[in-house]
């Protein structure tokens, strides 16, 4: 996978979806994330790269308040979704997460049928009124996740019976089914083989037409392939953020350059 081909850069001039300013995260006494400013744009794939433990996943989990589930985590600063602060006391994280979906590192289908996995989100959020509507949502979501053709004959068999790559696409379909506005992906391909990875990457590119996509990846090649914007994190700092092409070909910060050329990491 030495292919350093850079994805087509048709960076749209679309509006900012998420604006983060001065975000700090503390885990107990550890200062995990220091003063991060970033803008996530609609219709773009934004990649977070950096060595392990650099804070990229931590920041991703701030964007839909998944850090709330860790008692010791404390987030300060402001993160605004469409101009509304998501850490405002009036914001219900449940409502937020319906708008900001998430796909995890390891495929984690629920021990239910494929259909029930995808239907779970629409059901809990009450997005559909009838069974037919729900069927429809499940089908479109599976189609968007490029899984429909493989599973349409066994929608009621358990989701855990699929292969790793299929499971991850099922999880993407599950996230897509609630029609989020932002899709967060935490190293979605790290547990997959190269063929499944390619399928998922292709999918990500298609999805950015509908949502802002944020992807955390430990693979620079992947970031280069799928993203339009790239942010490089190191030791809890956001070192550099910019056009993917610029980061990979002409990094401004020496740390970014060391990482890209393989000296850190």
């Amino acid at each position: 996978m030495n292919d350093m081909r850079i994805a087509e850069r048709d960076v749209s001039t679309s509006e900012t979806k998420i604006a983060a300013r001065g975000v700090q995260v503390h885990y107990g006494t550890t200062h995990a994330l220091k003063d991060v400013d970033i803008d996530i744009l609609n219709g773009n794939v934004t990649a977070f790269i950096g060595p392990s433990g650099c804070g990229k996943s931590t920041f991703l989990r701030c964007l839909n308040r998944m850090n709330d589930t860790i008692a010791a985590a404390k987030v300060t600063g402001s993160i605004k979704l469409d101009g509304e602060d998501i850490y405002d006391a009036k914001v219900d994280p449940v409502q937020l997460r319906a708008k900001v979906g998430m796909v995890f590192q390891k495929p984690n289908p629920f021990p239910k049928s494929i259909y029930d996995n995808v239907a779970y989100g629409p059901k809990i959020h009450g997005l559909t009124r009838s069974k037919a509507e729900l069927d429809n949502v499940v089908e479109t979501s599976l189609k968007k996740a490029a899984l429909w053709n493989e599973v349409k004959d066994r929608l009621h068999s358990p989701g855990t019976g699929l292969s790793g790559g299929q499971q991850q696409r099922l999880c993407i379909a599950r996230a897509v089914a609630t029609s989020p506005e932002v899709l967060l992906m935490d190293e979605p391909c790290s547990a997959l083989d190269p063929i499944a990875t390619a399928q998922v990457e292709e999918l990500i590119d298609e999805l950015r037409g509908q949502f802002a996509v944020v992807i955390v990846t430990h693979s620079m090649q992947q970031a280069a392939r799928v993203s339009q914007k790239t942010a490089f994190f190191h030791l809890g700092n956001l070192v550099e953020f910019g056009e993917t092409g610029q980061i990979f070909t002409n990094p401004r910060d020496p740390r970014t350059e060391s990482y890209i050329s393989g000296r850190i990491g």
């Binding site: 319906a98 979906g101 998430m102 984690n108 629920f110 989100g121 809990i124 599950r174 609630t178």
Partner: peptide, 18 residues
């Protein structure tokens, strides 16, 4: 029960009890 299942559900916007 693995934490990843809980994360998956919470990440979709389910409440804790759901």
């Amino acid at each position: 029960v693995p934490q990843s299942l809980r994360d998956g559900s919470l990440g979709l916007g389910a409440t804790k009890s759901e």
